[in-house]
């Protein structure tokens, strides 16, 4: 989970793996993802209790960003509350 000077630097990075293109995103998109309530709520005193209910927004945002064409961002089984 690192930052790079440019998209070209990501693709030239020794740790870049084919099939992970949906994780190559501009800084502004990662800032949006790390700006959902799951992260804002870390200032709350009941954050750990509320954590499970804060997850769905991540996938709604990824959908809006057009980043759900491959399974890369899929949550693990049982991760989201029923």
């Amino acid at each position: 989970m690192n930052l790079f000077r440019s998209e070209e630097d990501v693709r030239a990075f020794s740790g870049f793996e084919r099939g992970t293109e949906e994780a190559v995103m501009p800084l502004a998109e990662y800032a949006m993802l790390w700006g959902i309530e799951n992260y804002r709520a870390r200032a709350w005193d009941d954050y750990i209790t509320r954590l499970p209910e804060l997850q769905a927004e991540r996938w709604e945002l990824l959908e809006r960003l057009g980043r759900r064409k491959t399974p890369f961002w899929d949550p693990p089984a049982g991760f989201l509350p029923e």
């Binding site: 690192n2 440019s6 998209e7 990501v10 870049f16 190559v24 399974p71 890369f72 961002w73």
Partner: peptide
């Protein structure tokens, strides 16, 4: 690389072309 933020607002990104990347799928 330098980034400045306040309350979720991006105030500065140097250079402006910064990208993020993770190679491990979320499920893992």
């Amino acid at each position: 690389l330098r980034v400045e933020m306040c309350d979720g607002e991006m105030l500065l990104a140097e250079p402006e072309t910064i990208f993020g990347y993770v190679s491990v799928p979320f499920a893992k």
